[in-house]
Every structure is written in structure tokens, then in C-alpha cells.
Write a protein that binds this DNA or RNA. Sequence first.
DNA 1: AATGAATGAGTATTCATTCAT
DNA 2: TATGAATGAATACTCATTCAT
Lengths: 205, 205, 205, 205
Amino acid sequence: MPQPVRQTGLSAPSMKDASTRERLIAAAFVVVARDGLEAASVKSIAAEAGVTSGLTHYHFPNKDALLEAALRQALDEYLDRVRARRAATRQEDQIEAFFVEARDTATKDTDFYRARLAFAVRALTHPPLAAILRELNGVAIAETALTFAAARGRDVAAARDLELAATLKGAFDGLMLSWLSNPAFPVEAAGDIMEAAARGWLADT
Amino acid sequence: MPQPVRQTGLSAPSMKDASTRERLIAAAFVVVARDGLEAASVKSIAAEAGVTSGLTHYHFPNKDALLEAALRQALDEYLDRVRARRAATRQEDQIEAFFVEARDTATKDTDFYRARLAFAVRALTHPPLAAILRELNGVAIAETALTFAAARGRDVAAARDLELAATLKGAFDGLMLSWLSNPAFPVEAAGDIMEAAARGWLADT
Amino acid sequence: MPQPVRQTGLSAPSMKDASTRERLIAAAFVVVARDGLEAASVKSIAAEAGVTSGLTHYHFPNKDALLEAALRQALDEYLDRVRARRAATRQEDQIEAFFVEARDTATKDTDFYRARLAFAVRALTHPPLAAILRELNGVAIAETALTFAAARGRDVAAARDLELAATLKGAFDGLMLSWLSNPAFPVEAAGDIMEAAARGWLADT
Amino acid sequence: MPQPVRQTGLSAPSMKDASTRERLIAAAFVVVARDGLEAASVKSIAAEAGVTSGLTHYHFPNKDALLEAALRQALDEYLDRVRARRAATRQEDQIEAFFVEARDTATKDTDFYRARLAFAVRALTHPPLAAILRELNGVAIAETALTFAAARGRDVAAARDLELAATLKGAFDGLMLSWLSNPAFPVEAAGDIMEAAARGWLADT
DNA sequence: AATGAATGAGTATTCATTCAT
DNA sequence: TATGAATGAATACTCATTCAT
């Protein structure tokens, strides 16, 4: 797969046998995360996937459908991780585990945030993307809220839990944006501040 | 200024006598805030300013220079507001005033956030914009940190103050992004959570 | 057969067992008649025939060959009808029968005209199609000329008969074009005018 | 104007100073007449006009608008000729003059027919073109009908006159299609047949 | 025979930029 | 200063054709 410029992990062996459709979705995500949505042309995505651009339109009706598929898949995978973490954690450790994972994701999966931020900002002027984000973010927030409910000894989420989950998700996005823009951003302190805020809010029942 | 569709504050009388250069800068901001950076073509900005697109290149060497000027100006104006507020507030009311203004800006100046988010995300893949943002955000954070220092009875900002200022600025961006994307977002609770976090962090010295 | 939108007589039971080659030919005719030659892509024809587009190139060397086959078949079938009608009609009723059939075909087989007009116009810039049309139209005109010869009590066609046959065929095409374009076109009167013209020309020997 | 392949009369001196918009319209007509609508790409039209294809979209919102302008202009010019001829002819010579002009146009302005036929057939599946044709053909037929009314000593057109005008226009299109497709077509006889038909219809009042 | 995947050339359109006036 | 015309490269998308299975 002799690719021109700046390619990443898609030609790695593990991707070799993935279906073309899946490789296109993965390539779209990679290009958006690495170069931004404005650089995510059909041509550049196809090049990243190692196929010709015409093929993109064989697998997807149009570019938007491809990008939406990429967004959906990224959010789905994120949701799976959130669920898996919660299921694997004892009730009394939920908050602890949540923040450990948050810090972990923030530092290890920056691509996820880069792509999500790009999509989220475009969604401000692109209703179809907004609908997808609203839907999947809603599910993710509801899921996270269960974490906080568990921390308070409940197994259904109250308004208070949902508010905290939504706030943390929103705030994390902004903090990631600041940090990705500026490596000097005090991530550690930001994490501490947010964690204290969460604990305070939960204690304050 | 939540504008409906395709409208302009720029052909309003007060703008009529602004220099063309200034009108182009203002138009660029309006278009970016309203329609997003991907819709901010030279043609659409010039149309918003009520001039022909060719003229843009008389006043600015290229499109990027125009957009950078628009970003600079928006951030400068924001910084002025922050400074003015702080100067007009007694020391013991600084925190109170800060959050009042934050909530106020969030609800009344959504255009500022829409445009800033668009620029911030593009900056992730566009170094010149990133440099501008880093520079001006740095100043704004330093300024805000003085607010927190004042609240702790100091008149120079400590690391603690800067960390809080940076964190709040970052978090606010993310919360605005969530709210702008989804009107059902719990802004009130988010504001309370952040305010409590700030007070806790400052108290915890 | 004025069909609504996107429908097919091809997946009807009677067609199910036709050979694929024949179904492709019939589908090509249907698509050309219904949507025009510019919409007759290999993909749309194959879809109409209920097969995949790749298969088209197994049965035909290329798209042009398929369209030519469709044109040939439509003209052949038309010629058969003309012959059958003439054979079934007594000598003194030939003219009467000719016009009855003409009006009948015009109103009942508009698809035939829609497709033929499309092919005829394309033939103006596409020599292979022009050759097919010239050949088969020549035969049809010669056949029709025999009708007029019969009406004059001869059994070989004279120049006069051929001229009338050619003129009527040409004029009918144009009248159909006008009528298909504009339902308000005075078909009745046009039929009367042409019939009178034919009778006059034949009488005027 | 160094043009590549197959160019015709547009680079002639008389066109040199025509506005670009007019040259594009003329070029569109030329390409449609010469190569057919399917060959009338924006690129080929622009090349015929001696400009780059991007410029086409400066002068016309899209390709259809250019083609429609070309059709409108050709029909307008034709209508002007019809009117001028009628105005310049004494009442008792109207029919004579009509057929003289018809034969003349047929032999000298074949481009007009080639283009009109192409547009008319496309109009069968393209409603916007159909609307234009219906409108302008209606006017031309009404105008021609006045010729026949005059020949009958009236100065308003009766249904009879309109029917004849519509029929002749339709029939002429078809005869031209036959002749353009096949140089062996008996134009002379066809003209005689149609002329006799017209005179018969008018006499038969 | 038939499918589904893949290619590469072609299409209309947009856009930043240049330039003569 | 300002306009309108013009360019050329880029974009998303279509399509006839090929080919392995």
C-alpha cells in the first residue's frame, strides 16, 4: 500500500483483512482526527484507506454518510468502553474508576477527542450530525449517570446524576480542547478540580 | 445574538461608515459564528459585508489573514470586557462578579462561543491559529487568575490561580459546546457545579 | 403505456423466464422510453432488468451494443406489425386500415415513439445508430409504400408511393413529439390533415 | 483564440467583441447543434467559447441555466424571423411566403433544427425545458396561425388556423429529423405534400 | 451465468486568487 | 478604493468497464 504523505496505522497488518467498508470508516476517523474535518475529502480518506476515491461511492451513498458512519462507530466504541468499565467495577469504586478511566482516555485516546470535537463543532451548523451526537451522547450520559447513582448507593440515575454526567462530559471536551491546543495546559490540576467538583456535588445530596 | 438565517448586523446604519476593513473583519466573525468556518468563503464574507469579493484581497493578503484578524479582534474585545469587569469590582466581590459575568456571557453572547469554538477546533490542525489562540488565551487566563488571587486576598496570581483560571476557561468552552449542540443541556446545574468547584479549590489552600 | 415513475413491466411473471439477454434488451427499451437516453446508464438498465450491472458486459460487449440491440428489436417488432396489418387487409381498405393503425399506435404505444425519438435524435451525432435507423426505416418505408401502391391498384411501389410513405413516417414522428411534449396538441386535427394530404397525393396521379 | 478540436464559427471576428455571456450562449447552441446535448458539457461549451470552464459558473448559476438561455434565445430569434416575414408580406402572398421560408430555413438553418430537436426530445424527460418549449412554441404557433388567417382573409386566428399551424410545425420537425438522419430523404416531395395539405385544409372551410 | 468489488476517467460546481479598469 | 471578469485547482459524485470468484 504505497501511500503518499502522512499516513498512519491503517495499512498495519491488522487492517489488511478488514473489509473495505470498515477500512474506509476507520480511515475517515483517522483523517478527521489527524487533519481535521476540512481536510477530510473523499480523496484523502480513500488514500488513507489505500483505495481509489471512486470506490468510496460504491460503499457509501455520499461523503456525509461515510463521515456519519465514522462518527457513529467511534461513539459506539466509546460507549462500549464506558459500559465495560462500569460492569467490571465494584459499586464502591465506581467514582474512582471513572476518573482513572477519564484521565486514561484523555491521555491515550486523543484521537477520539480530536475527532469528536471536530464533529461536535461542525454539528453546530449541520443538523444531521447534531442529531447523531445528541442521540449517542444522550446514551453515554445516561450510562455515566448510573456510575454516579451507584456511588450514591442507588441503581437508578436521578436528575442530579444526569446533570453531573452531562456537565463532566461537556467540561472534559473543553478541557481536552484546551490541552490539545496548548500542551502547557495544566491537565493534572484540571483533573483534580473536576474530580473534587464531582465528589462535592455527589456528597451534597 | 442568536440570528435566524442569512442576516446581517453589518448593513445596519452604525456599520455603514465603518471602514471597509473593519466591516470585513466583523462580517467574517458573523459568518463564522452563524454558519461555521466551512461556510466562511471569501465570497460569503464579502457578501455579508456588502462588498465584492475581489476587494477582500485589497485589504487582506489572503483569506487566512482575514480570519486571523477576525479571531484576534474577537479575543481582544473579550479580554477588554474581562479587564473592565475586574476593574469595576471590589476585591471581595470578585468571584461573585466573575460567575455572574460568565453566566451572562454564556447566555447573551453565544456568537462569541460559536466562533471561538470553530476557530479553536480548526487551530488543532492549523498552527497559525493555534499560536494566536495560545497567545491571547494566555493573557485572558492570566487576567482571570488575578480575579482569583484577589479573592484570596493576594494581588499577584499564584500557580493555583492560573490553574483554576485555565480550567474554568476550558470547561466553559466545553459546556457551551454541549449547550449549543443540545438545548436540553442542564446549564444551570453545570454553572452551579463549576462555581462550587472554583470555591472549593480556592478555599482549599 | 404511460408509466408513472420507476416502474417496470420487466419483473412481471411473463418476463421472469425470458433469457437474461432478452430481459436486458427489453429493460433498455423501457428505460430509454421512460427516462430518456441520458438516464439510460448500464446501472439503471440492469436495475430495471433485475440483474447486476456487471452482467451486462457478459451479454453485450459494451453499452452501445445493448442500446443498438434494443433499437433493432423495437424497429423489427414495429415492422412486423406493419406487415401483419397489410397482409390482413383487403386491397381496397389499405389506406383506411393504415390510418386506423397509425392513430392507434400513436395513442397506445407512446413508448415506441418516445424511445424512437430519443434514438433518432442521438443518431444525428452517432453514426452507428444512424445506420441502423436508416436500414430499418428504409424497410418500413418500403413496406408502407406497398400499402399506397395497393391503394392505387398496383403491387409494386412507385417513387410516388415511397415519397408519401417517407413523408408520413417523418411527419408522424414530429407530430408525436409535439403531442408528447404538449398534451394540448391538436392530435385529431393533425390526423385529419395528414390523412387528407395522403389521399390528395395518391389521387393526384 | 487558440481552440483545440472541432470549432466552428464562434471565433469569427463578429464574435470577438460579443460579451462573454453572449458568447457562451452562442457556443452552447453551436455545441448542441453540432455534437448533441449529450456532448454539451460545460467544458466543451466553454472551450467552444474560448474561455475556461470555471467562467461559465460566473455567468450562469449552473449548466441548465446556460442551456435554457441558449434554447430561449434560439427560439426568440426564430420567432423574430417569423414575425418579420409576415410583416413584410402582402396578405394574398402569405401562404406562398410561408412555404418559401419554411423550405429556406430547412435547408439553410439546419443547426436550428438540430438543436431544437435535441432540446425537444430532452424536454420529454426534463420538465423545465418542456415549459420553455411549450411557452415559446405556443407563441410561434399563434404567430404562424395569423399567416393562415390572413390567407383566408381574416385578421384573427381561428381554431382551424391554430390547428394547421401546430400540425405544420410538428410535421416539419419530424421531416427535418428524417432528412437530417438520411440525406436520401425526399425533401422536395415532402414539401409539396405538406403544402398541398395546408392549402386543402384552408380551402376546406 | 452471475455477483460484487474495484478502477479511472469524466462530470458539474466551488473557490481563493489575480488583474485590468 | 472598488468592481467585475477570469483563471486553475480542488471538490463530490457518476459511470462504463474489468475482473476474481
